[in-house]
Design a protein around this nucleic acid. Structure first.
Lengths: 336, 336
DNA sequence: CCAATAAATGATATCGATAACAACAATGCG
DNA sequence: CGCATTGTTGTTATCGATATCATTTATTGG
């Protein structure tokens, strides 16, 4: 930076100001400085800048898996929502593992982010402590934890399942199964299963048709395998609610292979509004949790918290209402 | 850090050393320091550390889209490959846009990464200049640029197409179309199309059945629409090579809707070895570019370059051989 | 025309760590 | 026993920027 200052015939301080948009600098001076910087191929060192100003421009974000269209959409919303304020997302993924999350959060905090976004509501004790003591806004997304750390931008996974059950019952199905929902690692999937069980029971229906599909991420293949197990155990099942669209699609391909008509013999519903659920034949009923919107709202909340200053005392809750997308895979009445 | 030093009764320098694994510190002293740090909830400031040691621990990575399983796998390979050396991926996406890439690269370079990984071979002039002058290893992936900046870890998209053409011809098809491949933005998709044309021509076959599917990312829906256009223009088409598995699956659903048998009436091939191509009915012939492997090899190359020092003069090329996955969608002979 | 204000720039200390060197104790070896 | 070696810790300067305060030069209104 002092090289640039010399080249432009000003002090380093003026160069520093020329790179901030808001500061007092003469337009011509700034122009000259930017030109000099360009000649020298100078790019500012954000790390040093951050050290001095105590603003790193980072927002840390953890997601369970990078290879998941839903979380990717949320990250997209975050990235784009934070861009206007010059904030950059620092991304890490946990592999659906809380110990890994703890390690990751520790690593991310060493970068002194100005806020941190985590997915889900369950963390290791140490992880929670770190988040509480970090002294920055913490946003929990994709869930509504019973005991939030700070702010929430999420939705009720349980209620989403309830919505689907309601729809299936309305179309005349009562022998309904749930596919997926691992208790140990996938808390959101487990919430969906819990919501399913609760809703079924509250309607006086049998809520014991539960098939595991292994730990997340649930692949299409695992969805197919799980459907096979489901049908061999409960052959008279009329509908199956899947923990995700990927499992649902896998399950549907298994139906095709077995010659089970969808939705004639069995109805299938998924979760996540993945593109595949819309385009496959027949299209699969799903829940759109509005992933991109979640990211955008989280970004907005962060910007608010960072500008308002110590308003952060209030633990805000921003709830997003998932939408039920009724499609052909559950639409028609039962034919048999 | 000086708080921790006081708490542990040592100098700040010793605390600094205690956090590095390689340094000379008495085991008991280190234990005491780590304990003190834990009591005070101290986490090291990597930014300050980086400023001083001139090692930020960042590796910048740009990908066209975050919502793409192939690129996500490469990022996974990079992340995991770099983890052992304590290097952290700093991710950004370009939306398949070179101006956006330039902006992103500039932003990423302000973070002083120790290396940078970019996808593809075409950049704006300024972007290329920045990369060349950054003074750090630059890895270009997913492609084999004619005029590499530094190191390459990639494969030939054109040859991958040629492989598919060879397979289709071997199964008796000659009226083959290519779906997708936008010249303006998706250089890799365009390379695949170019490879298709070249291979068809070299076999003396008609290489004019080309259908655009719009700018990337190509959705399943766009694949379906493109197939509709293809069949209305060239109804006698016997096989279609798609720019990606997503387009291929979309195209296949359109066949289902139109009652066209796959592979009986028309064979379909994709690219990318997405899970869907393996599980759909029928499974779709595809190319596995070994995305995770690309990431891992890039990580390894970076680690080599960073440790060897000024060996970086040699512009290495690490080539990965894509695998053809023959599946039912192209397998059987033509039935009509 | 002058005091008051605003605009533009500079000087200095500092952010939180580490590099580099110095200092000293313990150990080994001829 | 003395000197070289290794292990362990401390001191000082510094990385590249910015906060803060000081200073200088327009600008404005009474």
């Amino acid at each position: 930076m002092s090289d640039v200052a010399r080249e432009a015939g000003v002090s380093p301080m003026t160069v520093s100001r020329a790179f901030k948009s808001d500061a007092y600098v003469n337009d011509e001076t700034r122009k000259a400085i930017l030109l000099a910087a360009d000649r020298l191929g100078y790019v500012m060192d954000s790390m040093a800048s951050g050290l001095s100003s105590r603003k790193t421009g980072f927002v840390a974000v953890t997601i369970p898996s990078i290879n998941n269209a839903n979380f990717a959409d949320t990250v997209r919303g975050l990235t784009e929502g934070l861009q206007e304020k010059g904030l950059q997302v620092l991304l890490g993924y946990t592999n659906y593992n809380q110990e890994e999350e703890e390690r990751l959060v520790r690593q991310l905090l060493t970068r002194r982010p100005e806020a941190i976004v985590v997915t889900g509501g369950t963390h290791t004790g140490k992880c929670r402590t770190m988040l509480e003591n970090a002294g920055i806004p913490v946003i929990e997304t994709w869930d509504i934890p019973a005991d939030p750390i700070d702010s929430i931008v999420g939705f009720s996974n349980a209620e989403a399942s309830a919505k689907i059950v309601g729809h299936l019952v309305a179309t005349g199905r009562t022998k309904i199964a749930f596919l997926g929902g691992d208790a140990s690692r996938d808390t959101r999937g487990f919430d969906r299963r819990r919501g399913f069980v609760r809703e079924m029971e509250s309607r006086g229906l049998d809520a014991t048709r539960l098939v595991e599909a292994g730990p997340p991420p649930i692949s299409m293949r695992e969805g197919a395998d799980a459907l096979a197990r489901l049908m061999s155990r409960w052959p008279d099942t009329e509908a199956v609610v899947c923990v995700s669209d990927l499992a649902a699609f896998g399950a549907m391909t298994e139906c095709q292979r077995r010659g089970l008509a969808v939705p004639g013999t069995i109805a299938i519903a998924g979760f996540g509004a993945y593109e595949i659920s819309d385009i496959c034949v027949p299209p699969i009923t799903s829940i759109d949790p509005h992933c991109y919107q979640i990211g955008l709202l989280a970004a907005r909340r962060i910007i608010d918290l960072l500008s308002d200053g110590p308003d952060s005392g209030t633990k805000s809750q921003t709830l997003v209402e998932p939408s039920l997308l009724v499609r052909a895979s559950t639409l028609s009445e039962r034919s048999s």
